[in-house]
């Protein structure tokens, strides 16, 4: 970061998308402290496609929450787009989440009563964008994921794969620092899952930074790098 230079969006040119330093997270339970993350450190470079794998109970979900700024670590440092997040309050974290992180959930979490276009617009509403701009960007993003012809449909009229494409389009509207995908193919059949992975590859090739949390080992070869978690620690890192 020493050679970094601030850009208009508060991002430092040439810096990694995100840095985690010795992240620890423990929960207070009836029988005392339960450590879930026991010191996680890694860096995600800009334009990198990172996979996070681990069996259940490995701390994957907690790490996802920390990465998504939905949970604050007990100790350690999380630097997102050059900003240290540990001292930010809920309001600032929400703004950062809105502008810097593109969420993609396993079960899509689209709003069933809104059209595809309106669903894609939601993060822009919270970013205070004007309706005309929102419509334009939503159309462009829909085109990017191949859903231009579905803009006025509702999620109930779409297939699972199409729903996940809407979610991907929605995640990109505020030009985030990285896309954070939580088991994005978990609710899809194999063929559709492959299609979605292809979509991620396409976005990756066009420069998007992607962090994908999954337990599906067959995707290992598709990531630039894979971090394996076990018992709240990084067990190993692999590259294809």
């Amino acid at each position: 970061m020493s050679t970094g230079q601030e850009t208009g969006s508060g991002e430092i040119e040439g810096s990694p998308a995100l840095i985690l330093r010795d992240i620890r997270k423990s929960y207070r339970t009836g029988s005392g402290e339960l450590p879930v993350l026991k010191g996680i450190s890694f860096t995600v470079g800009r334009g990198e496609f990172l996979g996070i794998m681990g069996s259940s109970g490995s701390g994957k979900s907690t790490l996802l929450n920390v990465l998504g700024l939905l949970d604050v670590p007990t100790s350690g440092e999380y630097i997102l787009s050059g900003r240290t997040t540990s001292r930010l309050d809920d309001r600032e974290l929400t703004v950062l989440r809105n502008r810097r992180i593109g969420f993609i959930f396993q079960s899509f979490h689209l709003f069933p009563h809104l059209t595809v276009r309106q669903n894609i617009e939601v993060p822009m509403i919270y970013a205070g964008k004007k309706p005309a701009y929102r419509r334009m960007v939503a159309a462009r993003m829909a085109e990017k994921v191949g859903l231009s012809h579905r803009l006025d449909h509702r999620p109930t009229q779409l297939s699972g794969g199409e729903c996940q494409r809407v979610a991907v389009a929605r995640s990109m509207v505020n030009h985030p620092a990285f896309l954070l995908a939580d088991e994005p193919t978990g609710n899809l059949d194999e063929k559709t899952g492959t299609d979605i992975m292809d979509l991620f590859h396409r976005l990756h090739r066009s420069g998007a930074t992607i962090v994908m949390v999954t337990h599906n080992p067959q995707y290992e070869n598709q990531f630039d790098r894979t971090i394996w978690l076990r018992n709240g620690l990084i067990e190993r890192e692999t590259r294809p």
Binding site: V95, F103, F111
Partner: peptide, 16 residues
Amino acid sequence: RKEIGTRRALGAQKSD
């Protein structure tokens, strides 16, 4: 609550 959680994750402030 699912809708609310999703909105919060997508950038809705508590005040929103």
